[in-house]
Design a protein around this nucleic acid. Sequence first.
DNA 1: GAACCGTGGCG
DNA 2: TCGCCAAGGTT
Length: 363
Amino acid sequence: MSTFSEHVVTWQRQHGRHALPWQNTQDPYRIWLSEIMLQQTQVATVIPYYERFLDTFPTVADLARAPAEDVMQLWAGLGYYTRARNLHACAQQVLANWGGQFPPTAADIETLPGIGRSTAAAIAAFAYGERSPILDGNVKRVFARHFGIEGDPSKRPVELIMWGLAGENLPVVSSTTADDMRSYTQGLMDLGATVCTRGAPDCGRCPVRGTCVALREARQHDLPTPKVRKKSPERDTGMLVLERDGCVLLKMRPSPGIWGGLWSLPEFALASGAEAAWRELGVKAQEAFELPVFSHTFTHFKLHVTPWHVRVDEAAAADGAAPGTGLDKAEWWWMPVARAGDAALPAPVKKLLAGLFVDGGLF
DNA sequence: GAACCGTGGCG
DNA sequence: TCGCCAAGGTT
């Protein structure tokens, strides 16, 4: 009679994923980078970001010494920008406090910024073969079904039960190798990602179907218990696309906050109007167009944006009242339109500018 | 404990 | 179009 973990380990070696860019390495830096990028983010989305990141910052020291702006630029579009700031801070701590080597245990890894219990365990398992349990979205779904756990897994009591299961079902101490821990940890993730999926679990291919409560009771589609969602609020805002001499005015977003650390378009309250907004910036408009409203859905609210495209009067700029001259260099940037593709901009803003300046054309 | 933090893919 | 949510962590 094989245990849960033995089935998972054997299955992973035969049927799991083995060719992802962050596999087949035991370099903690590469593993850590992948784990941070993969937080709440799907594999296919991460891959190109991961490759670009490693090309630019091959080692943790390269990342630690890089300007924050470069890190944000490479992260732009991936979302959850606190991850990027923590990533940078973490690299600097590894250099300053750990001699450039990642800490040797999950407990020590967890003291670093942006790394919680599950991510620390995953890094320690993949890099060192440490026997430490993970509990991510995939594992919660597998456990909820296999052990028949009721209740929203994001709620504390249910999560505690699952952490208990995660610890109890690790490969046994006496006969577990470092490589068993790598295969087991990867196997849990692979199981959730490729077999025990949310919509269409493929129970016929599951290595632990023989002991699965949900399968036995035909409750695969009732577990895990879905979380009750409040309907998200909606907000409206205006954005200015101020264009002067092939450049667009951007403002640094405060962090923490939505899009913190990214460059975005200046916003204004729709109630006060667009004209008041550009006047406040010391700008005289030559032409101004209201553009179609576009919407962007975040996890917890929906944003409706009314953009205004404003061409700034060059004459006004020449007579000493140049727009933007009184603006703080750290917070404001006249960005050449051609750089919109590369700069650290939120995805919807990048999309708006791309549509506005097709082929670098102005208006 | 609950709110907050992005984006893209999917049915 | 719309709701759901994916290798979670921080405040």
